[in-house]
Simulated scan of single mutants.
Amino acid sequence: MTTIKNYKKTRNEFAFNMAVNTLGILIIIIVLVPLLFVLAASFSDPDLVLKGKVLLIPKGFTLKAYHMVFENSDIWRGYLNTIIYTVTGTSISLVLTILAAYPLSRSQLFGRKYLLLILLFTMYFNGGMVPTYLLVRNLGLYNSIWAIVLPAAVSTYNLIVAKTFFETSIPKELYESALLDGCGNIRMLTKIVLPLAKSIIAILVLYYAVDMWNSYFSALIYLNDDKKYPLQIILRNILLIGQTEQFGTNDVGMAEKIKMAEALKYSVIVVSSIPMIILYQFVQKHFVKGVMIGAIKG
């Protein structure tokens, strides 16, 4: 009887593992195929890409698109602007998130529950686009870097993840010992908490950097100087040029612009993704731990 039960259990586990592995493979394919297509298209002849003859393998191999990227001053200016916005925004967001998460993680904080409720409220409701735009303009932030980095400086989700880490991953006895030794909150944060919070800091850097790097809507609303546009706006303009193909044209100049846009489109996507891929390599060992922190307890 025990053997039959063990056999059924083994068979059910095998079926479950097969289902999970099959689902995992399907997800990998769904994610990987578009990435491989973009990479293949960036090395292919634009004419073949426009005709739909390129799928996962480059056809009519050429580096013309990448030569155009390296020679385009607008793209490099947008690249530099995006790096500046990302570095500045991530630094500000990281500092503000830690300075808010640490006191909220301490049970002694007066009104802690009410402050958390107010923060959670902002996850579901906000002032809206028009009031936010008016606030940014009235504060004199319009058409400046601060209009990009300040309105979204703190993510409530990231704040809760950091707070949970400080609560669950750092022993209360450590706090108590530090207080007995005469350690104040500022020194405790800088000398004890932060050295033990390298994993959550790495995760916050990744979350904020990716969000800031991919952001384009704020720049679209708050910037009117094309010299301050981030790379994402430059890419958007290239995509808009390429979309004129759907109307059809016999104009040689317009057709050439469409081909150039098609060539640039995929190569810019590849080039713009490189910094985030490099950043992920430095924080990947902390990534799973950081995700689990927010999933275990909020």
Rank of each mutant, 00 (worst) to 15 (best):
T86C: 11
P131N: 12
T132P: 11
F110T: 13
R112E: 00
T88H: 06
V130R: 11
V95K: 04
P131K: 11
G127N: 06
L115K: 00
L96M: 14
S93D: 02
R112D: 00
R106D: 08
G111Q: 09
L94N: 05
L117S: 13
Y124L: 14
L94M: 08
T86S: 11
V95M: 06
Y133H: 03
L120I: 15
T88L: 14
L104T: 01
Y102V: 02
T88R: 07
G128Y: 10
Y85P: 00
L115T: 04
F121R: 10
M123S: 05
L94A: 04
G128D: 12
F125M: 13
L104W: 02
T97S: 11
L99S: 10
V95D: 08
G128W: 07
Y85N: 01
F121D: 12
F125I: 15
S105Q: 08
L116N: 03
M123T: 12
T86V: 06
K113V: 06
L104C: 03
V87A: 13
Y85M: 07
L96I: 12
S93T: 02
T122R: 09
S107D: 13
G111K: 06
N126F: 12
L109H: 07
A101G: 02
G128E: 13
F121M: 14
V130L: 15
K113F: 08
I92E: 10
Y85K: 03
T122L: 13
A101V: 05
G128Q: 11
T97E: 09
K113A: 12
I98S: 01
A101E: 05
N126Y: 12
L109T: 10
P103E: 06
T90N: 01
V95S: 05
M129K: 14
Q108W: 09
A100P: 05
Y124N: 11
G128H: 11
I118N: 10
G128T: 11
G111N: 06
F125C: 07
T122W: 11
L116H: 06
P103H: 05
Y114N: 09
I98D: 04
